[in-house]
Amino acid sequence: MLRQIRPAIVMIVVMTAVTGLLYPIAMTGAAQALFPYQANGSLVEKDGKVIGSTLIGQNFTSDRYFHGRPSATTGADPNDATKTVAAPYNAVNSMGSNLGPTSSSMITRIKGDVATLQAQNPNTPVPIDLVTTSGSGLDPDISPADAYFQIPRVAKARGMDETKVRSIVDAAVEPRELGVLGETVVNVLALNQALDASMTQ
């Protein structure tokens, strides 16, 4: 019987060592050597302090900044640990809303968001992804259409010429990977940093 059990035990030990220790250590080492910025979370620093990551969105709410897509992530209710409350872009609780197209609460929220956005820019149709949540709730990017739609609000709040704000958006548009993969996007944090930088020039 020991002759049958021994190979199984040896394989468990060997595979645990290979897949549980050696492989992760090798991949972590290779990532740190070849792509240290990405391997450490693609962190963004300003004045020596980490202010975010290019991979996780932030809840910008001021009219002076471009806003990301709505986020459906939640967090623990500080008043009742058995409940949750809305916590946009909560990186420890990535999730979508799980609401379907017939959900009355989702329809009500979207209609309200559309009305608010149309009041800010009445001459342009509201891009659908600017009022719908992403699957992760952490999307750091918006479409160029989303960014262009927000230009009048941001320009007015900052007292800037819309043409100058548009040029900042133009420069922030990221092309498809290798020219064919994914879609053109605008990283909201990077765009808002460029916007702040333009005010000091």
Rank of each mutant, 00 (worst) to 15 (best):
M15K: 05
T16V: 11
A17Y: 14
A17T: 07
G20V: 15
G20F: 15
G20M: 08
G20C: 08
L21I: 11
L21T: 08
L21V: 11
L22V: 15
Y23R: 04
P24V: 09
I25M: 08
M27K: 00
G29W: 14
A30V: 03
A31W: 01
Q32H: 03
A33Q: 06
A33S: 13
A33C: 05
A33R: 01
F35G: 00
F35C: 00
F35A: 03
Q38Y: 01
A39Q: 11
N40K: 11
G41Y: 09
G41I: 08
G41W: 11
S42T: 12
S42K: 07
L43F: 02
V44D: 01
E45V: 12
E45G: 02
E45M: 11
K46H: 13
G48T: 08
G48E: 00
K49T: 14
V50Y: 03
G52I: 01
G52H: 03
S53Y: 11
T54W: 01
T54S: 10
L55G: 03
G57Q: 04
Q58W: 04
N59S: 15
F60D: 04
F60A: 08
F60Y: 08
S62I: 13
D63N: 06
D63S: 09
D63W: 09
R64N: 07
R64H: 11
F66Y: 12
H67V: 08
H67I: 10
H67R: 15
G68R: 12
R69C: 08
S71Y: 10
S71K: 10
